[in-house]
Structure formats: C-alpha cells, structure tokens
Amino acid sequence: MSADTPDMRSVIIETAADAFAADGYAATTIDDLADRVGATKGLVYYHFRSKFDIYLAIFEQGMSRLRAEVDGEVAAGGTGLVKLAAMSRAHLINLMTHLGHHHAIHQGVRGQMSSALKPRQQQALVELNALRLDYEKLFEQVMIEGVADGSIRASSPRMAAKVLLSSLNGIDLWYRRREGQSVAETEALADEIVELLIGGLRAAH
C-alpha cells in the first residue's frame, strides 16, 4: 500500500489502537506500528508527526463514531429510561466492536500518557476531552428527562450518569472478543449487561 493511499491513515489508526490496547501506549514504538502495518517507519511518519498524534487520531475517531451511534438512539425518542437503555446498548456494542479505541482513550483519560506534549497537542487533547465531557452530559440530560417523566428513579441524575458510564466503560477491563464471535452474540451480551445496569434505575409503578 503506497504512502498516498487514502486507506493507509485509517489502517495506521486501527492498528495503533489495537497495539496500544495490547501493549500499552508507552511500550509501543513507531517501529512496532510499522511492523504491524507491514510498512516502513517513514510511511507512518508520512501520515503522522508523532506517536501522540496517532493517539489523538484514535481518540477523535473513537469519540466521533461513538457519539454518532448514541445520538441516533437519542433521536429515536421514548421515555428517559427507554432512551438511556438504548444509549447504553449502543455504547456497549461500540466498545465491544472497537475495543482498541476505548482502551486507548481510557489510557489518556486515566493519565497514563507520559509524553512531553507540544502546545498544539495539549490543545488538541483539551478539545477531545471536552467532547468526552459533552458526551457524559448527554447521559446526564437523558437521566434528568427520565426522572421528570417518571421512568427513572435517581436522587442525583448527575451522579447516576457518572456511575452508569463508569460501569459501561469498565467492561473494557475484562471483555475480550472471542474469535468467530457473531454480531448477534455481541448484541446479546450488550442486552444482558444493560439489563443489569439499567434495572436499578427503573422506577417502580
């Protein structure tokens, strides 16, 4: 694949996400990524100025893809509880399908990035973390809607949203995709987890 092939950038991003997830950001070198891609180190640098810039691309792609999928569930309507369950399901399916991206994002959020960042990189990370916080606010808003429409019981919607998202994101600590796992199996697991997490929020009638 040549340097000007449009898909090469995407290949590097996907490969790096899996590498950072498997070996850690710090332990993964540009040489490692080049070997995984089957290209030269120069080709990687043709598309990205540094390893951290690759990380930023993973973060941006991961958040953009996740937000688009979850926004679709919000737009579908329903009570706060119905929307929250659908959002949580979409989040889980995205996580299990793109596990490397979530691992990489969480490494950054949990402060595992030790690189000395340039001002432009610091600003980019600030902006990406703002997207993540806005995503969290979306869950909080739907939680508030559910309390208002009587479908959700939560004394503190903000705290409930944080706990829910922490639980959803915590799946990446133990989940590993099984070879040959079907889409239906992934969706069934997501449904089971959502029921466990959302059940406690369901208002009694």
Rank of each mutant, 00 (worst) to 15 (best):
R158W: 08
S167R: 03
Y55T: 06
L168T: 00
G180F: 05
L133C: 10
I144P: 02
L81K: 05
A104K: 00
S182N: 09
S167K: 04
Y135W: 08
L173A: 15
D134N: 13
Q112K: 12
A90H: 01
G146C: 08
M96T: 10
I198T: 03
I193Q: 04
I152S: 10
I58R: 04
G150E: 13
E60A: 12
T186D: 09
S114Y: 11
T186K: 06
A85C: 12
L56P: 01
K137L: 13
A86Q: 07
F52C: 09
T79I: 02
I105A: 12
E192W: 02
Q107E: 12
L196P: 00
D71H: 12
H102Q: 13
Q181F: 02
A154Q: 05
L117W: 00
T97R: 07
A75K: 10
Q122H: 04
A130N: 07
S151L: 05
L133A: 15
Y175G: 06
M143D: 05
W174I: 11
S151H: 01
L128S: 12
E192K: 08
H101N: 14
H91V: 04
A161S: 14
G150R: 04
L125F: 12
A160G: 11
L197G: 13
A86W: 01
E69D: 13
M63K: 04
L197V: 03
A75E: 15
E136N: 10
I171D: 07
N94W: 03
R65A: 15
P119M: 05
D172A: 14
V70C: 09
T79Y: 03
A116G: 07
G72Y: 03
Y55M: 15
H106G: 15
A85V: 05
H103W: 13
M96F: 09
R158V: 07
G100N: 12
A124R: 03
E136P: 01
R89H: 14
I105F: 05
V147Y: 02
G77D: 11
I105Q: 09
A161L: 02
A190Q: 00
I171T: 10
S155V: 08
M87N: 02
F52H: 06
Q122R: 08
L189N: 10
L92R: 01
R89A: 09
A76E: 10
